[in-house]
């Protein structure tokens, strides 16, 4: 089954649209009416977007959803999805792929905050940049992303992979401040530069191919290791947190 959703330009483009029902799972059940919220009003999807459904599906994995138009303020697309595929042609709003357990989301533009928050499985590919809290957790939560994979070709904002407890994240660009804060598991690879990385980590592994600026001063130096043909400085920590995580970085500086 192919679903094509084209969001129309609306009168006030700044009002966010919450569209947690846009998942392959929702299209599997025919009797489902897809509704969205525009501010404090609720509408059927047809009110804000044109959409067409072609073909049939026997399982969620047969469903491909293509989303077009201005979706930079459309939130929660793919939330709780368990299979199938979503492709977003432009930018996407906050909380895309929250809690997803399977399937694939591909974003050709950039993503706003909380991309793949608390995801358990599946795959997210973002060709542009991602906002703050990419692959992280929720406020006050103890575990962020738990499984699956996230790949961002651009850069990410602050607090990327905060509380991450499992899964794999690959960031081709730079990160903002406090990447991998409170890290508890999983593997994060940053090909660019990062700031105050792995603060308070307790477990997990992080590779920084660029420079880790303002290194947290409570990591224990373990020497150098060769990984992937590159020489990395190996750190263990965060000692302040009785942590046992591994941080590998090519360059690092302290704020002295």
């Amino acid at each position: 089954m192919n679903v094509i959703i084209t969001f129309r330009n609306h009168e006030n483009p700044f009002i966010p649209i919450e569209a947690e029902m846009i998942t392959p799972d929702a299209f599997l059940e025919e009797k489902n009416e897809i509704c969205v919220a525009v501010g404090n009003r609720s509408y059927p999807l047809s009110e804000v977007a044109d959409f067409s459904i072609v073909g049939e599906a026997s399982s969620v994995d047969d469903i491909e959803v293509l989303i077009r138009g201005d979706t930079s303020r459309v939130k929660r697309v793919g939330e709780y999805m368990s299979g199938g595929a979503i492709t977003i042609e432009g930018d996407i709003g906050m909380h895309c792929g929250n809690f997803m357990s399977g399937g694939r989301i591909e974003i050709l533009g950039s993503a706003d905050g909380w991309l793949g928050r608390e995801m358990k499985g599946g795959e997210i590919i973002c060709h542009g940049d991602a906002g703050d809290y990419c692959a992280s957790g929720y406020r006050g939560g103890r575990r962020g992303m738990r499984g699956g994979s996230v790949e961002v070709f651009g850069s990410v904002g602050d607090f990327a992979c905060e509380h991450i407890a499992g899964g794999e994240v690959l960031i081709h660009g730079n990160t903002g401040d406090f990447a991998c804060a409170e890290m508890k598991g999983g593997t994060v690879t940053i090909l660019g530069d990062t700031s105050r990385v792995c603060a308070n980590m307790s477990a997990g592994t992080c590779y920084v191919y660029g420079s880790a600026v303002e290194m947290i001063p409570t990591f224990e130096k373990k020497g150098t290791v060769n990984h992937d043909g590159v020489l990395f400085h190996h750190f263990r920590g965060d000692v302040a947190n009785r942590g046992n995580g591994d941080l590998y970085t090519v360059h690092f500086t302290y704020l002295q």
């Binding site: 603060a199 947290i216 001063p217 409570t218 965060d238 000692v239 302040a240």
Partner: peptide, 11 residues
């Protein structure tokens, strides 16, 4: 730099 100082004190 507060965060870094606090981490150092904790250690």
């Amino acid at each position: 730099g507060d965060y870094l100082v606090l981490s150092a004190l904790r250690a």
